[in-house]
Amino acid sequence: MNIFRLSGDMTHLMSVIVLLLKIHTIKSCAGISLKTQELYALVFATRYLDIFTDFVSVYNTIMKLIFLATSFSIVWYMRHHKIVRRSYDKEQDTFRHLFLILPCLILALVVNEKFTFKEVMWTFSLYVEAVAILPQLVLLQRTKNIDNLTGQYVFLLGAYRALYILNWIYRYLTEKHFVHWITWISGLVQTLLYADFFYYYINSWKNNVRLQLPA
């Protein structure tokens, strides 16, 4: 464990807490893409298959349980909570995430470190996480009005990935033969997807204007 990874995990935790607080307290999920939330639930469900078989550390197990619980409860809130679901704009959130899931599954079957069920599922979860934010970014560009909680949520998610890249650089420098192209490339792609959002988010923050993404 290093400071980059710990702060990355904490930033990731913050992002889901911000989202849960927004949905739970103001009972609204306006501007949030259910498709992205479903993709994240899928990411954690396929990545943490070994939660009860391979014990890494107490921290690791607790964080996995938190991410599983929060991602599934956010999906539940947006789908079934009688008040929250009313604020979900399904007309705008139309990204066909199946078109993301299938290519990731095929790629995971072809490009992986070991052709076993667990390994393919783990690799699949990496690829899905890399593209999971796309429906949310598309929705933000459509709905124009980005409330600052949603903006903070996306910003924290991007920051968590950026910190993970620093973590991989640190581990590469300190642990010999720590080379994992699949993890690194999918993580890099994911972080790059946030690049333009970061640009507009920081600009809007600097000029103290509402965050507007270009059409």
Partner: peptide, 10 residues
């Protein structure tokens, strides 16, 4: 420790 992969990461 788990084999040197990123599996020990979240």
């Amino acid at each position: 420790t788990p084999d040197q992969t990123t599996k020990d990461e979240l």
